[in-house]
Design a binder for these strands. Structure first.
Lengths: 188, 188
DNA sequence: TCTTTTACTGGACAAATGTCCTGAAATCTT
DNA sequence: AAGATTTCAGGACATTTGTCCAGTAAAAGA
C-alpha cells in the first residue's frame, strides 16, 4: 500500500511512519466474506495476495459480480464508504487472501494530519473514477463478446483464476452466452 | 456553483471571493459543442441554465450519449480533465445554455489556497464516483425497460426535453426498442 | 482415493432486441 | 405560413441473447 501512495506523492518518512501505525492486517480463506450488504463499509483494503470480488443480487436472486480486485489493488464498497450508507454489495475472497486495512478512522487521521494526504485521497478517488468511467464506456460501446476480448487481452493471466460464471455476470451476460463467445474466439 | 461548494464546506467570505474571481462565464447556442473528442478537457462547467449532453461514437459511427447534465449540475469530460489525456467524448448543448466555468488553472489555485478547497475537491470527486457507480449498477442489474422506468420516475420533467434517440443510446438500447418500451409502459 | 458436489459446454427452443423501412408528426428554416 | 428537415412510431423480419436442460469434466470433501 505504501508504494502506491509514494507513487502519487513524495511523502516524508514521518508521514509514512504514521501510515504504518494505522495499517492493520487480515487474512481470509477462500470463499469468506469481507463485507456483506446491509453493513456500512468502514474500511478500504489493499490486497497483498489473492483475489477479491464484489457482487450483488438482481431481482431474480442471481449473484452479479460487480468487480474484481487483484494483488496491489484497493477494494471496498466505495459507494458505502463514501456515503456511509449500507452497502449494496458483498465482498468475497475468491482465493485465500492477505490484506492490509485502512479503516475510516485511520483515513480521517491521515486526512487531518496534512495537505499531502488530503491531496492523495483526492487523486486516488480520481483514479478510481477514471477506472469506473472506462468500465461504463465499455458497457455502452462494446458488445459482451468485445468486452470479453478486451478483458482477455488485458488480463489474460487473471482470467484462468476466475470461475466463468462470475466472469459472465461481470461482463453483463449469461454463462451460456459466455460459453458461446469463448468457443467463437478460440476458433478465430 | 457557489452554493454547491457551500453545501459541502463552510467557506469564509475570503475563500468565496477568491472563487468569484476565478469563475468565468459562457453561453452556448443549442447544438453547439463545448468540447470535442481529441481535445484535452481543461475546464469544468456548472450549468446555470439549459442542458448539456456528452457523447462518443461506437465503431459503426453511431453517436452514443454518455451522460446528460441539467441546471445546477457540473459537467466536463472528467476522465480527460483528470488524466490530461485527450477526451473520448464530445460535449454538446441540447438547449441554449448559460455556464459558469472553472478551468484547470483556477482549480489548482483553489487547491493550493487551502485545506478546505482540497477537501471539497475530494468530496465532490467522491460524489461523482457514487453517481457513476449507481449508473453502472443500473446497467448490470436492470433491463433497458427498467432503466427507462427508473429514469422516468426520477427525472420525468427532464425527459420531455431530450430527443428520444439520445435517450435510447443513454439507456443502452436502440430507438426502436425504446419505442416498444414506451408503448408498453403507457399501457401498464 | 473415492464420493459428492460444483462448474462447464453445448443442444433445442424462446424471448428480447436489433435492422431496415415507411408514413406521420413535429420542428426548423426562410 | 409553406416547404424542407428531422424525429418518431411501429410493421416485418433477422439476429442476438437468454432459458432450460443434460451429459461430462473438474474440484472439493471425506
Amino acid at each position: 500500500m505504501k508504494s502506491i501512495f509514494q507513487s502519487i506523492q513524495d511523502f516524508s518518512q514521518e508521514e509514512l511512519n504514521l501510515l504504518d501505525d494505522l495499517i492493520t492486517f487480515r487474512t481470509l480463506k477462500k470463499g469468506e466474506l469481507l463485507l456483506t450488504e446491509d453493513q456500512v463499509c468502514n474500511e478500504i483494503v489493499f490486497i497483498k495476495k489473492g483475489i477479491l470480488r464484489s457482487f450483488f443480487m438482481n431481482h431474480k436472486g442471481d449473484e452479479i459480480t460487480n468487480c474484481f480486485a487483484f494483488e496491489n489493488e484497493f477494494m471496498a464498497s466505495f459507494a458505502s464508504f463514501i456515503t456511509q450508507e449500507k452497502a449494496t454489495e458483498n465482498i468475497q475472497a475468491l482465493t485465500d487472501v492477505e490484506l492490509q486495512i485502512l479503516d475510516r478512522k485511520a483515513l480521517e487521521k491521515l486526512y487531518k494530519s496534512g495537505f499531502n494526504w488530503q491531496e492523495t485521497g483526492r487523486k486516488l478517488t480520481e483514479l478510481e473514477f477514471v477506472n469506473l468511467h472506462n468500465r461504463m464506456v465499455s458497457f455502452q460501446k462494446l458488445s459482451g463478446a468485445e468486452r470479453y476480448q478486451e478483458l482477455y487481452q488485458n488480463h489474460q493471466k487473471y482470467l484462468q483464476l476466475i470461475p466463468l460464471q462470475y466472469l459472465a455476470s461481470y461482463l453483463g451476460i449469461t454463462p451460456r452466452h459466455l460459453s458461446r463467445i469463448r468457443k467463437a474466439v478460440i476458433h478465430a
